[in-house]
Design a protein around this nucleic acid. Sequence first.
DNA 1: CTAGAACCTCAACTAATGTTGAGGTCAATC
DNA 2: GATTGACCTCAACATTAGTTGAGGTTCTAG
Lengths: 151, 151
Amino acid sequence: MPPVETHRPLSIGELSERSGVSASALHFYERNGLIEAERTAGNQRRYRRDTLRRVAFIKTSQRVGLPLKDIREALDSLPDGRTPTKRDWARLSLRWRKELDERIAALQHLRNDLDGCIGCGCLSLKSCTLQNPSDELGASGAGAQRWTLPK
Amino acid sequence: MPPVETHRPLSIGELSERSGVSASALHFYERNGLIEAERTAGNQRRYRRDTLRRVAFIKTSQRVGLPLKDIREALDSLPDGRTPTKRDWARLSLRWRKELDERIAALQHLRNDLDGCIGCGCLSLKSCTLQNPSDELGASGAGAQRWTLPK
DNA sequence: CTAGAACCTCAACTAATGTTGAGGTCAATC
DNA sequence: GATTGACCTCAACATTAGTTGAGGTTCTAG
């Protein structure tokens, strides 16, 4: 029975194929401190297997809408030196959950506002300018900030 | 009783303040064909009042997540020459609704997947690599594409 | 041992979405 | 009629998230 190669490190090509992230993006992540690699005698990268999970974390975080800067901060909170445990990952993932909930709620709110508006063709969500033909709100100044989605 | 200035065109400063969009962004939108303006004898921009709604449409579309390119295409489908009616705007807004529904659904799907994963600390969503210690999936090749959110 | 695939670095480029600044003009007020 | 704030154009810069290419090296299979 041949040994299963559970611990052999991954070349960049392997990591790329398995993670679905291009080699150039992996280089980019490394330059930005999101992942790291050992090197062979000939200077080629060798990734520890748990880098696969790290990259998965990065990709999923991006789907949630987080910028790389934030993702990197989250990853920086992983223990130095040892391979992260499932509890470590679970802790980080809770952060996604919160972020996701917020984004979903924000979009649903927007949709609800919108539903009242599509029928009338208005666009102000809060105060239909179609029903405000003389544009009275304009004089009152800062109607603008209402457009900004709470970050 | 003084006349309400319903038809006086807006200067860029007025449009900027009322829409909450910076003048430089308005310039940018104009360069990219999203809005347009008449000019005074002295070459200053004068916006028709319905440009306010146009800008509102742009901002809301961006909140929904549409890129300017798409927004511009939508705006291009507005009638040339005449001021858009509420039906015109309502037609365009339907697109938001669809886009929003899709984004919400995608995020909810992601959240559901995640919920099953947070407990175990895994990240593969579909096939927990924690429960796959020898990384068997790797051999089968393209596990990667599953990570990509259907556009 | 050699051919070709895979890998290396570094710099330059892309695309989207604007912002900033220089240098100059226009318009309303004292 | 001069000042001051609002406006003009054009070019350069900023940020995020990478990609592309040139020129050179390493690894693996025959």
